[in-house]
């Protein structure tokens, strides 16, 4: 066996060198990662997604077609943080593709690049439901994280295809610019560099600076401004990154614990909390049943905002930017309940 390993490695290397310069094949576990990868890869790589926006990436099953996609992939991009733990190992093992196994250059774990939230502080037990011990995996809904992913995809593609390094870097830069423009508006981006806009926004001094320089704020940030500080209910613990970015406060989830469907008693508690805590609205993905949200809405008057969290989760969410556009537009259009509205 010992002599076999170097021999096998040599064979793989030889196969890689001998391979014609065909376009790279990128497989992403979710439609969001795939869309960002598509923007970065341009026409130098074919990008395929395992989940569609209508699927729950927690609950997929490793199918033969997924194994086929993984078999041929040069780069595998996953959300990570154990989101795909129920099916990804079976697909990766079944693919017999050494290039995309964890730890290889062809395996990009997006979750390891971002700042995770909801990392359990104490010991984790399954009494807590389907918690993710390394942090909340729904990070792509924060546009800042989409920028991080784009940059990382460009670096990884360049490592696999040095000839395209320039194109990948340029594509990633234009993706970041597109995100920045949607986030802050073209006027702001014309005067202040994107990175600085994010830093100012994070420091809480962006509005002041724009006012001082007489720049009209725009984009998602401006549209979401009236909702800053608003308390919301979500269905699953999936909007935390989005809420943090735009200053919403998640006051409760319709699921009593992650992965556990709601009970009547839990909904009653939420109704009471909606009143006592001044909750403004309910935000959830369309693939969860909206009955529970409507039940709370009936008793409290809270608006229910149904919006996809992933590319393809609704017809409007045709790409990453459109997905965030849709969420922001639907939230901005929702009329927060009177007692929930805060200045």
């Amino acid at each position: 066996m010992r002599t076999m390993i170097p021999a096998a490695a040599a064979l793989v290397a030889a196969a890689a060198l001998a391979a014609p310069a065909a376009p790279l094949r990128v497989v992403a576990t979710t439609s969001d990662l795939a869309d960002i990868a598509r923007a970065v890869a341009g026409d130098r790589a074919g990008v395929r997604s395992i989940c569609t926006g209508a699927d729950d990436p927690h609950m997929m099953q490793g199918k033969p077609s997924f194994i086929l996609a993984a078999r041929d992939a040069d780069l595998w991009i996953r959300v990570g943080l154990e989101l795909e733990i129920g099916w990804e190992p079976v697909v990766l093992e079944g693919s017999r593709n050494p290039r995309i196994q964890p730890g290889q250059p062809g395996h990009l774990d997006a979750g390891s690049l971002i700042e995770p939230i909801d990392v359990p502080a104490g010991p984790v037990t399954r009494e807590m439901g389907d918690v993710h011990p390394s942090g909340n995996p729904h990070f792509w809904v924060d546009p800042w994280n989409a920028r991080i992913i784009a940059t990382a995809v460009a670096e990884r593609l360049a490592a696999l295809d040095a000839g395209g390094a320039g194109a990948y870097a340029a594509n990633a830069a234009s993706f970041r610019k597109a995100v920045d423009e949607r986030m802050f508006g073209a006027a702001a981006l014309a005067k202040i560099p994107g990175d600085e806009l994010w830093a100012l926004r994070a420091a809480g001094t962006l509005d002041e600076r724009l006012k001082r320089e007489g720049i009209a704020g725009g984009g998602w940030d401006a549209m979401m401004r009236p909702l800053r500080g608003a308390r919301v209910f979500t269905y699953h613990r999936s909007w935390g990154y989005f809420a943090r970015r735009f200053g919403l406060e998640v006051a409760g989830e319709i699921e009593p614990k992650p992965g556990i469907p709601p009970s009547g008693a839990h909904l009653d508690r939420l109704v009471a909390k909606a009143k006592s805590a001044g909750v403004a609205l309910i935000l959830q993905e369309p693939f969860y049943n909206a009955r529970a949200a409507r039940r709370i809405a009936e008793k409290t008057g809270l608006p229910v905002v149904l919006t996809p969290i992933s590319v393809g989760g609704a017809p409007e969410a045709k790409d990453y930017l459109a997905t965030i556009d849709t969420a922001v537009a639907r939230l901005a259009a929702a009329k927060p309940s009177a007692e929930g509205a805060r200045q």
Partner: peptide, 9 residues
Amino acid sequence: GVPSAPEPA
């Protein structure tokens, strides 16, 4: 080497 978010809570 990873760009860090400018919002460290």
